[in-house]
Design a binder for these strands. Structure first.
Length: 884
RNA sequence: GGGCGGUUAGCUCAGUUGGUUAGAGCGCUACGUUGACAUCGUAGAGGUCAUUGGUUCGAAUCCAUUACCGCCCACCA
C-alpha cells in the first residue's frame, strides 16, 4: 500500500498518469487476430478551431467505450487526427496576410500553401494534443491529418475512380457563391437568416402596347440577366395577354412572357422576372423554356458588362442606382417592405449569391442507394434511432454534391487540361509531359477527404492486392463506433457510409452515437460571441478532467441537449472527493488491522467470519447495479451508467455499507481484518467499473492499493463480470426495511427534538410476517446508527413515548419529559388519513372484477400484499392513537 | 410549408415492455465537526406529471387534440 493523501491532488495525478500512459505506449494498437478488435476513428477537429465543451463530451464518450472494451479484452484502436478545414483555414491565412498588408496573390499559391502547413504545425497539432488533458486513450502513433500524403493519395484515387465511373462531372450550375471567400460553397455550408428588405414593383412594358406587366423583385440589379417574365398558367389576370414580348427596361431588350406553374399567383403581382443565371428556381424554369442564362455578375459580386452603365458597381450600390434610374423613368410602381430569408455563408458571413458557373459535382443518387439500405436494414445503427428518419429524408432527396472550391488550401483536383487541345487528363499522378498541361486550379471540398476517413487512416490505397495485404486495414475496418454531433449527419456521416460501401464494400462503422449539444445554463448555444462557452482547459485546471468527464456524461442524456455551466462540474468533483475519502477510510483500516494481526496473530477459530445480511446485501447491490450498468452501456445510455455507479457508490456503499461495517468492526474486532478486506475487494470492483469514465482518479487509487509498477495500468484489468447468483432481491428487500427502520427512528428523534448526541431508548415490534427477524448483531448496529442506549423487541414501553408505524415495524421512542400529545396525535392522524386513502384505492382495485380478470397474477399478489400491510399499519396506528 | 424533439418539485433533469402513495442532484429549512469525507452527515418542506379528449380494470407512461419552447429540412420572387 502506498501513502494515501488526505486530499486528492487531481492536477498532479491526472498529468502524471496521462504521461505514463503515453510514454509506455499503453494504447498503441496492434494487429492481434487472436483477439476481437474494437476500432474507432476520432471526428477530426479543425485546425483553426479551439477546443470547446462539445469536443470534451464527444471524446469522453469515445474514451468510455474504448476503455470499457479494452477492459473487456478487445484490442482497441482509437485513431486520432485533425482536419485541414479548407475554407476556415484559407480565411485565417488570408486575414493574417491582410494584417501584413498583403494578399494571397502577392505571395503566390506555393507560398500560401506553405503558410497553411506552418499553421497546421503550430496550432493544429496543439489542438489535438490538448485532448491529452482529457485523458483520452487514443493511439498517438496513428495520428493522421486530412491533408497528409497518404490521405492525399486516397483522395486522388477516389476522385479519379469516380471520374472514370462517370460519377464525377463538370457542369454549369447555379452554385452558392461566397463573394467574400470567392468560392463556391455547398448547400450545407450556408444558413438562412431573416432580413428586412425592400420589394420593388417594376413595370415591364408589353411590346407595342401601352400596357404593363408589373414584376416584384428584391433584386432589381439582376434584371439585366432577365430572359423572360413568368406567370402562372392559371392566372386569370394574364390570360388575355397571350404570347407577347415585354420590353426589359434599361436594357431595352425583348423578353417573352411565359407560363410556368412554379409561379405563385398570390405573391406580389403574380409575375416573376426570370433570371436563370442568378436563381436556382429561375434556372430550372429557364431549362424548361429553353431560356438563355445570362450571368451579369463578376466573381466579387460586382456587375459585369451586361450591367451597362452600372458595370463595375457592387450589387448593393448598383441596386440603388438602378432603382433611381427606374424611378426617373417612371417604371417603379411602388416599393414595399418585406421580411424574407437570405442565405449567408456560414464561414465568411457574406450574403450568398446564386451564381452560374462551371463546377465539379459528384452524382449522389447511385451512392445514396446502398447507403440508405445499410441504415434501414440495421447494419448501421443510429443512437438515438430517430435520426434514421432524418437520414432517410435527406438521402431520398439527395442532390449532387458540388465538390470544387476556388481555394488554394486543400486537395487540388487531379485534372489537367492540355495547353493546346484542351483535352482532359484525369489520373492519380500528373501527366509525364507536364509542361504541356495545366492542372485545374480548384481544390476539393474538405469533406471529400473526411468522407474517406474510416479507411484512409488505415492506409487504404485502392489497390485490391495491397489492400488485402494491409493487415491494419483488414483488421480494424469496419470500425465499431462513431460518436458525433447530429449537425453533420449529412455533411459527414452519410458521406462516410457512401464512401465506405463504395471503396471497402463494407459499412464504415456499426453504431453511430449522436451526442448531445452543449448549451449554457440558459439553454443558449455556446458561442464565442456570447462568451458563454467555458474554456475546457480552465475547467480541467479547476475541477479536474475526471470531474468534467463525469459531469458531462451525467448531464447528457442520449440525444438531448445538455444545459451546462461551469459550476455544475461540482457534481463530478464532489463525487470524486467522496470516492477518494471512502478509499482512504478503507485503506487506513486495512493498514491498521493488518499491522495488528501481524503483531498478535489471531487464532483461526477466533477469526472465523460469518457472512451476514450486510455482506449479502452489498454483494447483491453491486451485482444488480452492475447488471443495470451493463444494460445501459449496451444501450448507449451513458448518463444512466454514470447515475447507477454514482448512486451505488454514494448511497449504497458509503452511506450504508461503510457506516455499518464501521460499527461492525468496532463491535467484532476479531472480524475487523476480514471486514475491511471485503470492503477493499468491493472498492476495487468500483474502481474498475468507474475507470472508463474517470480514468485518472481510478488509476491513482488502483496504484495506491496495489502498489504496482507504474506501467501496470488498471485499464487492462478486466471489467467486473456480473455474478447473477449474488443478486438476492429478498435480501435487498429486507435490507430496505432495515433502512426504513433506521430512518424512522432518526425521524422520530428529530420530530421530538432529541439532540443527536443524546442517547435514547427505543422499542420496536415487527408487524410484517414476511420479513426475517433481525439478528441481535444487526440490532446492535442499529443501536449505534441511531445512537440508542437500548433497542428492545416486542416490549411495549411504559410511560411517555412517541410512536411511529412503519410498513414493517412499529416503533416506540421513550421520552423523559413531557410528550407533546397534540403534535403526536396530529402526525399519527395525518399518517392514518394517508394510509386510509391508500387502502381505499387498493380495496377498489381489488374488488374490481376487470382488474382481477385481466391483471397479471404477480401484480395482483403485490397489490394484495400492499392491502394487508396497509390494514396492519392502520390497525397499529389506531391502537397508538387510543393510548394517546 | 414538411419533419423531429421537448413540456414532471424553485432550478436542471430521471422515470427503458402501461401496475410507485411519482424520484435524483442542486437550491431551501432544521440539527450536527467525539477523525473517511463540511467538496460532508442526518432529517424535513416542496409536484392535480402543459391542455383537452380517448383507449384500458389501471395512464406521467399508449393514441388523438390544442398551446408554448427548441431543432432540422425546404423556401418566399
Amino acid at each position: 500500500m502506498k501513502e494515501f493523501l488526505p486530499k486528492y491532488n487531481f492536477n498532479e495525478a491526472e498529468s502524471k498518469w496521462q504521461k505514463v500512459w503515453e510514454d509506455n505506449k499503453l494504447y498503441e494498437a496492434k494487429v492481434d487476430t487472436t483477439k476481437p478488435k474494437y476500432s474507432v476513428v476520432i471526428p477530426p477537429p479543425n485546425i483553426t478551431g479551439i477546443l470547446h465543451m462539445g469536443h470534451m463530451l464527444n471524446n469522453t464518450i469515445q474514451d468510455i467505450f474504448c476503455r470499457l472494451k479494452r477492459m473487456q479484452g478487445y484490442e482497441v484502436c482509437w485513431v486520432p487526427g485533425i482536419d485541414h478545414a479548407g475554407i476556415s483555414t484559407q480565411h485565417v491565412l488570408e486575414r493574417e496576410l491582410h494584417s501584413q498588408g498583403k494578399t494571397k496573390g502577392d505571395i503566390g499559391r506555393e507560398a500560401f500553401v506553405k503558410m497553411g502547413w506552418e499553421w497546421k504545425e503550430k496550432y493544429g497539432t496543439i489542438i489535438l494534443r490538448q485532448l491529452r488533458k482529457l485523458g483520452v486513450s487514443v493511439d498517438w502513433s496513428k495520428e493522421r491529418f486530412t491533408l497528409d500524403e497518404g490521405l492525399n493519395k486516397a483522395v486522388r484515387e477516389v476522385f479519379v475512380d469516380l471520374y472514370k465511373k462517370g460519377l464525377i462531372y463538370k457542369g454549369m450550375r447555379i452554385v452558392n457563391w461566397d463573394p467574400k471567400a470567392q468560392t463556391a460553397v455547398s448547400d450545407d455550408e450556408m444558413e438562412y437568416k431573416e432580413k428586412r428588405d425592400k420589394l420593388y414593383f417594376i413595370k415591364y412594358q408589353v411590346k407595342g402596347l401601352d400596357k404593363f406587366v408589373i414584376v416584384a423583385t428584391t433584386r432589381p440589379e439582376t434584371m439585366f440577366g432577365d430572359t423572360a417574365v413568368a406567370v402562372n398558367p392559371d392566372d386569370e389576370r394574364y390570360k388575355s395577354f397571350g404570347d407577347v414580348n415585354l420590353i426589359l427596361p434599361l436594357a431595352n431588350k425583348e423578353i417573352p412572357l411565359i407560363r410556368d406553374s412554379y409561379v405563385d399567383k398570390e405573391f406580389g403581382t403574380g409575375a416573376l422576372k426570370v433570371t436563370p443565371a442568378h436563381d436556382v428556381n429561375d434556372f430550372e424554369i429557364g431549362k424548361r423554356h429553353n431560356l438563355e442564362a445570362i450571368n451579369v455578375l463578376n466573381k466579387n459580386s460586382t456587375l459585369n458588362e451586361y450591367g451597362l452603365e452600372f458595370a463595375g458597381m457592387d450589387i448593393f450600390v448598383a441596386r440603388k442606382k438602378v432603382v433611381a434610374k427606374l424611378e426617373e423613368l417612371g417604371l417603379i410602381e411602388k416599393i414595399e417592405e418585406i421580411t424574407h430569408n437570405v442565405n449567408y455563408a456560414e464561414k465568411s458571413g457574406a450574403v450568398i449569391e446564386p451564381f452560374l458557373s462551371e463546377q465539379w459535382f459528384v452524382s449522389m443518387k447511385p451512392l445514396a442507394e446502398p447507403a440508405l439500405k445499410v441504415v434501414n436494414d440495421g447494419q448501421i445503427k443510429f443512437h438515438p434511432q430517430r435520426w434514421v428518419k432524418t437520414y432517410n429524408h435527406w438521402m431520398g432527396n439527395v442532390r449532387d454534391w458540388c465538390i470544387s472550391r476556388q481555394l488554394w488550401w486543400g486537395h487540388q483536383i487531379p485534372i489537367w487540361y492540355h495547353n493546346d487541345t484542351g483535352e482532359i487528363y484525369c489520373e492519380v499522378n500528373p501527366p509525364a509531359d507536364i509542361e504541356n498541361w495545366k492542372q485545374d486550379p480548384d481544390v476539393l471540398d474538405t469533406w471529400f477527404s473526411s468522407w474517406l476517413w474510416p479507411f484512409s487512416v488505415f492506409g487504404w490505397e485502392n489497390n485490391a492486392a495491397k489492400d488485402k495485404a494491409n493487415e491494419q486495414l483488414q483488421y480494424f475496418y469496419s470500425t465499431d463506433f462513431l460518436a458525433t454531433a447530429a449537425d453533420i449527419i449529412f455533411l459527414w456521416v452519410a458521406r462516410m457510409i457512401m464512401a465506405g460501401l463504395e471503396y471497402m464494400g463494407e459499412i464504415p462503422f456499426k453504431d453511430v452515437y449522436f451526442n448531445a449539444l452543449i448549451r449554457d445554463g440558459q439553454g443558449r448555444k455556446m458561442s464565442k460571441t456570447l462568451g458563454n462557452s467555458p474554456d475546457p482547459l480552465d475547467v480541467i485546471d479547476k475541477y479536474g478532467a475526471d470531474a468534467m468527464r463525469f459531469t458531462l456524461v451525467y448531464l447528457a442524456p442520449l440525444g438531448n441537449d445538455v444545459l451546462y455551466d461551469e459550476a455544475s462540474t461540482e457534481i463530478g468533483r464532489n463525487f470524486i472527493t467522496k470516492l477518494w475519502n471512502a478509499g482512504r477510510f478503507i485503506a487506513l483500516n486495512n493498514e491498521k488491522y493488518n499491522e495488528k494481526s501481524e503483531n498478535e496473530p489471531i487464532s483461526k477459530e477466533k477469526s472465523a467470519y460469518d457472512v451476514d445480511i450486510i455482506d449479502e446485501w452489498i454483494n447483491s447491490r453491486l451485482n444488480s447495479s452492475l447488471k443495470a450498468i451493463n444494460e445501459n452501456l449496451d444501450a448507449f445510455r451513458l448518463n444512466d451508467y454514470s447515475k447507477q455507479i454514482y448512486n451505488f457508490v454514494w448511497s449504497d456503499f458509503c452511506d450504508w455499507y461503510i457506516e455499518l461495517i464501521k460499527i461492525k468492526a468496532t463491535l467484532k474486532p476479531e472480524n475487523a481484518k476480514q471486514i475491511f478486506a471485503n470492503a477493499q475487494a468491493n472498492y476495487l470492483a468500483i474502481l474498475k467499473i468507474l475507470h472508463p469514465i474517470t480514468p485518472g482518479v481510478t488509476e491513482e487509487l488502483w496504484h495506491i492499493f496495489k502498489d504496482i509498477d507504474e506501467a501496470n495500468s488498471i485499464s487492462f484489468e478486466s471489467f467486473p463480470a456480473i455474478d447473477e447468483s449474488k443478486i438476492n432481491l429478498k435480501i435487498e428487500n429486507e435490507f430496505g426495511s432495515l433502512q426504513e427502520l433506521v430512518t424512522g427512528i432518526r425521524n422520530l428523534r428529530g420530530e421530538n427534538n432529541i439532540p443527536n448526541s443524546k442517547k435514547c431508548t427505543v422499542y420496536i415490534n415487527k408487524i410484517n410476517d414476511s420479513i426475517t427477524e433481525l439478528s441481535s448483531d444487526i440490532l446492535n448496529y442499529i443501536k449505534s446508527l441511531c445512537n440508542l442506549d437500548e433497542l428492545n423487541s416486542a416490549v411495549k414501553p411504559e410511560g411517555n413515548y412517541a410512536s411511529k408505524i412503519l410498513p414493517d415495524y412499529e416503533v416506540y421512542l421513550s421520552l423523559e419529559g413531557l410528550v407533546d400529545k397534540a403534535k403526536q396525535k396530529e402526525k399519527l392522524e395525518k399518517e392514518l388519513e394517508n394510509l386510509t386513502k391508500f387502502l381505499n384505492t387498493l380495496d377498489k382495485k381489488l374488488s374490481n372484477e376487470g382488474f382481477l380478470a385481466k391483471a397479471a397474477p404477480q401484480v395482483i399478489e403485490v397489490e394484495k400484499e400492499k392491502q394487508n400491510n396497509a390494514k396492519v399499519q392502520i390497525e397499529k396506528i389506531k391502537e397508538a392513537l387510543e393510548v394517546l
